[in-house]
C-alpha cells in the first residue's frame, strides 16, 4: 500500500520534472514555424538553423567562451583557497571561504547589481571580460565546495605516510594530493560550466546589450516573436547538462559530491 503510494508520488514528480522538457523537444521538431505539440510534421531544420544562423551562432559562441574561461578562473580561485583551508585551519581562511560561498546564497539580482556598479565605475561595462570575471566570482562557490570535499576526503595520515616515505611537500602535492582532488576539480569545473552557460541576470546586467549570451538571446526572441529554434536550443542545453552530469555520475561519486556520507561503495 505505502509502496504503491510512494511509486505514484515518484511518478508524479517525474512527470512534472520531465513534462516541460518533453513538450519542448516535441516542439523543436515542428516542420513549420509554429509552436505546436504534438509537432506537425517532423524536421531537424531548427537545429540546423541554430548552427548556421549568425544570430544564434554568435550567442552560442559567446556563451561557450564565457562558460569555458569563467569556470577555469573560478577553479583557479577555488583550488588554492580550498587547499589553504584544508592545510591550515585559521579563521581568516574560513572567513574567505564563507565569502566565496556567499554569492550563491544572496539573491542573484543583488550580486548582479554589485557587479554592474563595479564595471561601470571601472569602465569595463559591456565587455566580455566583465562577464567572464563576474561569472567566475558568481560561481566560485561550486568548485570551492566540491574541491573542499575532495580535500576533506584526504586523511591526514595519508599525507604523513607519503612524508615518512621520503616525499617533500612539493612531491606530496604532486603525487598524492593533486591526483586525489583531481576528480573533485573536474566536477566543480563542470558544475560551474553548466551553470554559467545558463546564467541570465548577471550576464544581462554586466554586458547584456553588447555581449549577447544564449539565455539573453532566448529571452529576447521570447519577447520579440517565437521561433522553434528556441526549443531546439533548449533541447541542446538539456542534453548537454544531462551528458555532463551523467558523466560525473558514471565516473565520479555524485552522491558524495552532493553531500552524502555513504561508505556504500567500499
Amino acid at each position: 500500500m505505502s509502496k504503491t503510494l510512494r511509486n505514484i508520488f515518484l511518478g508524479l514528480v517525474l512527470f512534472l520534472l520531465s513534462g516541460p522538457l518533453v513538450v519542448v523537444s516535441g516542439v523543436s521538431l515542428n516542420a513549420k514555424k509554429r509552436l505546436f505539440f504534438p509537432p506537425e510534421g517532423v524536421s531537424m531544420r531548427w537545429y540546423v538553423e541554430l548552427l548556421t544562423e549568425n544570430s544564434w551562432l554568435i550567442p552560442v559562441k559567446n556563451s561557450l567562451t564565457i562558460a569555458f574561461t569563467s569556470s577555469l578562473l573560478a577553479l583557479s580561485i577555488a583550488l588554492p583557497l580550498a587547499y589553504f583551508l584544508w592545510r591550515y585551519r585559521v579563521f581568516y581562511a574560513r572567513a574567505l571561504f564563507t565569502l566565496g560561498i556567499s554569492p550563491f546564497i544572496l539573491p542573484p539580482v543583488i550580486t548582479a547589481l554589485g557587479f554592474l556598479s563595479f564595471w561601470v565605475t571601472v569602465g569595463l561595462y559591456g565587455q566580455m571580460a566583465a562577464t567572464i570575471i563576474s561569472h567566475a566570482i558568481f560561481f566560485v562557490t561550486l568548485p570551492l565546495v566540491t574541491i573542499s570535499l575532495g580535500f576533506e576526503s584526504i586523511d591526514h595520515e595519508i599525507v604523513e605516510a607519503a612524508e615518512t616515505m621520503g616525499a617533500d611537500s612539493r612531491m606530496v602535492f604532486r603525487t598524492v594530493i593533486f591526483p586525489m582532488v583531481r576528480p573533485y576539480m573536474i566536477s566543480g569545473y563542470a558544475f560551474a560550466y553548466v551553470l554559467s552557460l545558463n546564467e541570465y541576470i548577471v550576464a544581462y546586467m554586466v554586458a547584456g546589450f553588447t555581449v549577447e549570451t544564449l539565455p539573453i538571446k532566448i529571452f529576447n526572441s521570447l519577447r520579440y516573436g517565437y521561433t522553434p529554434v528556441m526549443a531546439s536550443v533548449t533541447v541542446v542545453f538539456v542534453l548537454l547538462a544531462a551528458l555532463i552530469f551523467g558523466l560525473i555520475g558514471r565516473f565520479g561519486d555524485l552522491p558524495k559530491l552532493l553531500g552524502a556520507l555513504n561508505p556504500e561503495n567500499q
Binding site: D155, E157, I158, E160, A161, A162, E163, T164, M165, G166, A167, D168, M171, V176, P179, M180
Partner: peptide, 20 residues
Amino acid sequence: IPAHKRNFGMVFQSLALFPH
C-alpha cells in the same frame, strides 16, 4: 631532520594506503 629525510618505514593505524 624532517620526516621525509629520515628513511624510516611507518605503518599507520589507518594504514593510510593511497586510494588512487
